[in-house]
Amino acid sequence: MPSIQSAAVVNFSSIKGSVEIREIAKPEIGEEDVLLEVANVGVCGSDLHQWTADHSWTVNYPVVLGHEFGGHIVEMGSRVTQWKIGDRVVSETAAVVNMSSPMSRIGLYNLDPDRKGFGYGVNGAMTKFVKVPARCLHRVPDQLPFEQACLTEPCCVAYNAVVNNSPIKPGDRVVVIGPGTIGILCAAVARLCGAQVAVTGLEADRHRLNIAAKYGCEAIIGDASEWAKRADGLGADVVIDAAGTSFTLKLALDLVRPNGHITKVGWGPQPMGFSLDPLVQKNITLQGSFSHNWPVWEKVISLLASGQLDVKPIIGGVWPITQWHEAFEKMHSGEVVKSVLKPV
């Protein structure tokens, strides 16, 4: 029998704009894998960076994009237990990890040097079927629609950055730089932690800053210094850099108070071009935050299912896979915060 072919959004080379719809065969799964029929898949900033060829990570071309996804189990490998056909699930992003590595052995497989993720290391979910290791799966409660559940992954990035990697206490003043998906979700999680939060961006970010305001945040275009120093003149307790350019880290150094904390979650390959002396002079802690692991996913799914963390305000629309270009463009231009795709 001929294999089933499905439309997929494929990044086929490192040249700018090298993304197109291709027909691909249904994946063959291994004994510890499941085959998911994808219900929805979110468009991530990293998908856009691979499309515009300004990413800073190695890509295994050609590759199907998409690592924010959920769907139903339609096939299971012979050694898969605790799951059944039809289960509603979302998947973590660490498609390939060495479970014997020192990082994996302590539960931080997201930091395993051999890690390869969906959408750059192996084929992702911007298609009808995707092969997923069963260890990556998390159950989705019936009350949580897939167009929201597929955004569990960026929520986990935010949760890890804010809860695990930032010492935020109720009443702290927190500045988030960059009103993209991760920035707004970091702000939302910081609000859940009891912080007073401002989100700062450029004039072109006005629409996205208005969405940040829906989460109870102060939306600031341009300089956030006055807000950061409003309490006692010293600056914000925590600054989260969710933009990733060199300038925003310099800005974070200016906004944070002495003995304060900066969490850097935004990527950017550019050289810094400025002195880190303020980091020393102000006794600042600079913390990187990357990805997430099992307990983070369980916490976030609970928050989403209960409605305590609501992703509906950031969803700018749902497009069929075949209209990926429009969905990418609307995110790239800042017209929407998050685009969601649906396989056809």
Rank of each mutant, 00 (worst) to 15 (best):
A236Y: 07
W324S: 05
I284S: 09
A94Q: 14
S91M: 05
V189T: 05
V41P: 03
I301C: 00
P102M: 06
G45L: 09
M103R: 09
R206C: 02
L234V: 12
G201W: 09
A252H: 01
G119E: 11
A190I: 10
V189W: 05
E32P: 00
T200F: 00
E226G: 02
T93S: 15
L234Y: 14
E153Y: 07
F247P: 00
G316T: 11
H261E: 04
V340R: 04
K214Q: 14
P62Q: 03
L48E: 04
K26D: 03
E28G: 05
Y109I: 02
T200N: 05
V197D: 05
R208D: 08
E92H: 04
G70E: 02
M99Q: 02
Y159P: 02
P278K: 06
V199D: 00
S275F: 09
I284H: 06
R206D: 11
F146H: 09
D172A: 09
I85D: 10
P179I: 06
D310L: 07
C44R: 13
V41G: 06
G66W: 15
V59D: 15
Y109H: 13
V59P: 11
G70M: 04
Q82P: 00
N283A: 09
C150Y: 08
K131T: 08
P167L: 06
V43Y: 15
S166R: 13
V176Y: 01
G201H: 03
W267E: 13
G124T: 12
K330I: 14
F69Y: 13
A198M: 00
G178L: 00
D33C: 09
I85W: 12
I21Q: 01
W57F: 14
A188H: 08
R173L: 06
A7D: 09
D54E: 04
V340N: 13
N210H: 06
V162H: 10
T81S: 07
L251F: 02
L251N: 15
H261N: 14
T93D: 13
V38R: 03
N160P: 04
I177C: 00
P320F: 00
V318Q: 12
Q196M: 12
P154N: 08
I211N: 04
Q5E: 12
